[in-house]
Structure formats: C-alpha cells, structure tokens
Simulated scan of single mutants.
Amino acid sequence: MLTRRLLLAAGAASLAAPAAAQVVTRLGPEAEQLTILSDGGFEMPLAMLAREVPTDAIAAETGPADPYRTVLNVTCLRRGAELILFDCGAGAHFLPGSGQLQESLRAAGIEPEAVTHVLFTHLHPDHFWGALDEFDSPLFPNARWLAAAREIDFWTAPKVYEQLPADRHAFAAGAQRIARGLGDKLERLQAGGEWLPGIAAVETAGHTPGHVSFAFEAGGQPVMVLGDALTHPRISFAYPEWRPASDQDADVAVATRRSLLDRLSADRTIAIGYHLPGAAGRVEKHGPAYRFTAS
C-alpha cells in the first residue's frame, strides 16, 4: 500500500538525485511524430513494487538498489494542427524530483499555448497535478482536457475518503483541487470508444477504477500509451501476477496486465509506459511470460 511513510521516504530519497528535464525520445515522421518528455522521477522503496513478495526476491529482478528510482514519461503526439499530450506530469506539489514537464516542453520547443488536447490515463498525482500552473490556472490555456467519467466520479465523490486508506487521502484532495481548477474544461468521456478521431480509450482498470490506455496509429504503426497499466520494465512483464502497492484493485490490475500483454505482443504494438525507462518499446513472449525491449 502507498502509505504516507513510504511517500515521505521516497521524497527524501529523491532529494539526493533530482532528474533533469529532457526529451526522452522521438518516434515517427515529422507529420505524425511522437515526442516523449520527462517529468523527472522519484525514488520509492523496493517493497512497493510487489505486495507480499520478499524484498530479496524483488531485488533479484531489479538489482540491489533500494530505494528504486522510477521515471515519469509524458507522451506528446503532433498530427496536423493538433498537439496532444497524454497526461501532464506532477506539477509543483508532488514529490521532489518530479514536476519537470514545463522545462522539458521548453527543451522540445513546445509552447503551452500550442497544446490542443490533454488526455488523461488516470488522476493520480504524477499524471494529473501538473494541469495547473503556479497561479492555479490551466497550464495549457487552449487545450481540451479529457478524462474517463468513471475516474472523475471516483476521485471527486464526497465519499471517496471512505473508500481509501487515510494515507491516500492526499491523492483525493489533490485530484479534487485540480478538477475544481479545470472546472467545465474537464470533459467526461466513456472508455471503450474514440475520444478523438483515431484515438481510442481502452479500459485498463485496476491501478485506479477508471484507468484507461490510448490506442492509435502513428507513422503506420500501432501504438498504445499505457499510463500505469504496466509500470516496471522487468516485473510487469515477467511477473504480471505480482501486485504493486500502488494498484488500487490488485486482482483487476493483474487481469488487465495479462490481457494487455497478450494484445501488445500479438499486435506488435509500440508500447509507451509512463514509468518505463526509455518509454517506448515492444512486448514479446518470453517463456511462460513476456519481456519488454525498449526501442
């Protein structure tokens, strides 16, 4: 479980290794280009990568470093007059080491006014809290902001605190603050259909109740922006049955991972993970499980 103690430990560790703003990678032709931008990163205890798995077993898969450092990748799709972001980072109020998106946008030559759409995989802090600037105004003033109705309903419900452990109440309070700041600009859509022409929201619940991933084509290749449906470059693929502490419904998340891995490997999809080093790669069958190979 993602507790306040673990978050504070992660935050303290992150102070020692701040991440630089950067363009992680670019994929595809200029007319339909994917640019993956860093929002920095933070560190967390190895124990968070899998509930009820001994730390030494986790370390055998990840290496001995504890805490473990995770990256934050924000995907940008430019096609014609559209400039689409998938999630928008943590902003200034999450863990030290995160919140680097504005600097990465500058490094990529992208002005906030040019962003036309922001599509959210889910409303966790490192994906949603970057929506507002330092003046609590929408960071991208000309954008449409799109999120799953089920996800919005969960985090903004008055009784959400009754459905969460006390140590995750800050997630709900932050989500409600950002949702209020966006106001009517935050559009509610249903998973399972196209949110924009050619971009489908695929239901990938488990990590959160309304988590979605986004499937589309770019440069003639199938692409899926995964959000947090797959979060570790080794464990999520080799051990999809392991249960990360950040998954809200662990059983549903396991089923989602297995289904996604089957689909991604069968379709030879370019998979883009918010927390995967290198961000983009392919999923391949590997014995009884899978492996991820970064592009």
Rank of each mutant, 00 (worst) to 15 (best):
G41D: 02
G192M: 09
Q22G: 06
D136G: 09
G99H: 00
T70R: 11
T25I: 11
G130T: 04
V225L: 10
T256S: 10
L15S: 07
E32I: 05
P244A: 07
S98N: 08
L261F: 11
A215R: 05
A179E: 02
P54A: 00
A60W: 06
D184G: 15
S265C: 13
A17M: 11
G278E: 15
L189I: 15
G109E: 05
E103K: 05
G40N: 05
A250M: 04
Q33D: 04
I272E: 07
Y239S: 11
P158Q: 07
A21M: 02
L261V: 10
G97Q: 01
Q221A: 14
H207A: 11
L77T: 12
D66A: 00
A172S: 13
L15R: 14
F237T: 03
L46N: 03
I152M: 12
A279E: 08
L7Q: 06
A131E: 10
A205D: 00
W129L: 08
G40A: 04
T70Q: 12
A149D: 12
L132G: 00
L146M: 03
L186N: 11
R263E: 12
A21T: 00
Y274G: 14
W155N: 11
H286I: 00
V115Y: 01
A50D: 03
G198H: 04
I58N: 02
L46R: 00
F237V: 01
V53Y: 03
H93I: 12
L85K: 05
A172Y: 02
Y161W: 12
H275K: 12
E134S: 14
A170C: 15
Q221I: 10
D251H: 12
D136R: 15
P197D: 09
V71L: 04
Y290E: 06
E151M: 09
V283F: 08
G130H: 02
L6C: 00
A114H: 12
V212D: 06
E43G: 13
L46C: 10
H93P: 00
A108I: 03
L2K: 09
L186D: 12
R177H: 13
K285A: 11
D56M: 01
Y274D: 15
S98L: 07
E203S: 15
H232R: 09
T116Y: 04
T269C: 04
D267T: 06
D167Q: 08
G193F: 09
L72D: 04
E241R: 07
L105R: 01
L72M: 07
H232E: 09
P45L: 02
A238N: 03
H232G: 05
A200E: 03
L37N: 00
D251P: 02
A253Q: 05
F216G: 01
L276F: 15
A143Q: 02
I235A: 04
L27E: 02
A90D: 03
N142K: 01
S38I: 07
A143F: 02
E61W: 08
D167P: 00
S265K: 14
R282K: 14
M1A: 14
A57C: 10
E61S: 06
Y239I: 05
D133K: 04
A170T: 14
I235H: 06
A201Y: 07
